[in-house]
Design a protein around this nucleic acid. Structure first.
Lengths: 291, 291
DNA sequence: CAAGAGACCTGACTATAGTCAACCAATATG
DNA sequence: CATATTGGTTGACTATAGTCAGGTCTCTTG
């Protein structure tokens, strides 16, 4: 019972039972699990039905039935997507939002109990869950443009800065600041901010801002710890280079620090070459790439 | 989407889907999931039915039905437990063993695929699964006597030695050896070897061997990384002290090293006091406790 | 040794998940 | 512009999980 297979099986058993317990506690709200799972993915602002179906890996007939039953309960409304009138968008009603809040509090209780059990190791447990969930969700990983002021973008940046401080000797905590909400440097049409999503957790980002003329700068390439070692940084760089190309940028630059060895190796491997310094500390390496 | 609750929920989603995929791949063997789950817990040597029911958290009626259906298929046989004739013991038939091997290979495939995805981080992923499974199984944790030569006991000892080498400066890799299979020091009636089980993973051990007269020595207190921080070491010590008491031991001794700070803190907190040195390197601290 | 409790079995039942095929409407494609 | 594809809906169906009560042994306990 010491090989990885047996341990994976043990993990499956534990988690299957846990999911069962979760089911029955959710069932306390008088709604079958399938419908409850769907409900929890419907957002107040409206969520694409296909997206939910995809995430839960549901049959389209079954999905449709869940939606009807939630509609009958008055928790959601569905409407056709104006952009593509085959698609449907589900939206929470006020009653649905109340119901969601109730589920949220059940989930909060369970999470709190689990975290309490983990005691001093709560952080480790959350990291372990992130790692496994990211691994299992790998096929669903999606890179999408985001607003540089969205909470998720700011969280990515904060994580990025924290890592710089931890890894780059020359970097100090006060050295970095979140972007000015007024600034449009990282926003189309001048710039870009891309986030990589694993389900609803942002696990990576990269951004682009204009320098002058057709020269732009790639900044803030970051990958969440749970998603490292799977080529995400490369995918992010490819994505941002494609964006730059589409915007008509002719030359990309970036600055980095030699302590960030994996990043540096990636740049070298993808055609970036040395260029003249154009920024100061904590950068100590400057690269460019013609598109 | 950055708080622990949302992340727990994401984890649940990912894992529920994964379990679903596992289900359907197991269903390929033409047997409903419930029965397959039961079958996988039946061992060739025979397993207590109540134990299986407990691990899977099944209703007794449902469990009974699964057993009947597996019996009809000729995969298992059940017999009453001679020790308590209310209980039943399920045993794999040769055909059942073949079937198990088939499940094993499905599991092996899936595990291999998952590990392959994790690439360089396979070890981390397994550790993460252990941590979560141990946490979820916490209520089922059981301390049971074991044979000191069983593979599980040897694995515990190896892990224990590895940790000593890693943490105690004075300890060298060649310094420790697995117990002589002939020796009866750690076996009743003279000694004891206890293992703490989380499902079928050994997550801790402790042992007792006679010194002279009514003096005995506690040795090899070890807790798996995934089970630390939850008071298991204390439970193991209590268990071994109870065993010693029941055996008529009047005084316990142990040796340890001051680098093992948590262990030392535990001993101090549970009534152990300094005693004269009675062993050599790598020990540097000697304690005793009257029972 | 009687009473109660525990482990298991069986029958009867319900609820839920999931499948499949036929169908409609909108969009993409050669 | 005909045709294929996609997203979704509905009805009919099956399989499975799970619940509950009543029953039979067997063991434990006062």
């Amino acid at each position: 019972m010491l090989d990885p297979i047996a341990r994976l099986r043990r993990f499956n058993r534990a988690v299957t039972r846990e999911v069962g317990v979760l089911d029955t506690s959710f069932l306390g709200r008088g709604r079958p699990l399938g419908a409850a799972r769907v409900l929890q993915l419907v957002q107040a602002e409206g969520t694409d039905v296909a997206l939910i179906r995809d995430r839960l890996a549901l049959d389209s007939g079954l999905m449709s039935r869940f939606l009807r039953s939630l509609e009958r309960e008055g928790l959601i409304t569905t409407a056709t997507d104006p952009a593509d009138r085959r698609r449907r968008i589900a939206r929470l009603t006020p009653r649905g939002q109340e119901e969601m809040a109730a589920y949220d509090s059940i989930g909060r209780d369970r999470a709190a109990r689990l975290i309490a059990r983990a005691r001093s190791r709560a952080g480790e447990v959350v990291a372990a869950m992130d790692l496994i969930a990211t691994l299992l969700n790998r096929d669903q990983l999606a890179i999408r443009p985001a607003d540089p002021d969205s909470p998720e973008a700011l969280a990515c940046l904060q994580a990025y800065f924290d890592e710089l401080v931890a890894r780059v000797p020359a970097a100090q905590a006060g050295m970095f600041s979140l972007p000015d909400p007024q600034s449009d440097s990282y926003r189309p049409p001048k710039g870009r901010f891309l986030i990589a999503w694993s389900d609803d957790l942002p696990v990576g980002c990269v951004s682009l801002r204009p320098l002058d003329g057709t020269v732009a700068e790639v900044k803030r390439l970051w990958v969440h710890d749970s998603a490292r070692g799977q080529g995400l940084a490369r995918r992010l760089m490819t994505a941002i280079e494609d964006e730059a190309k589409a915007m008509g940028v002719g030359l990309l630059k970036l600055d980095t620090n030699s302590a960030l060895t994996e990043a540096l190796a990636l740049y070298r491997a993808t055609g970036w070459t040395a260029t003249a310094p154009y920024t100061g500390t904590p950068a100590d390496t400057w690269l460019e790439k013609a598109l």
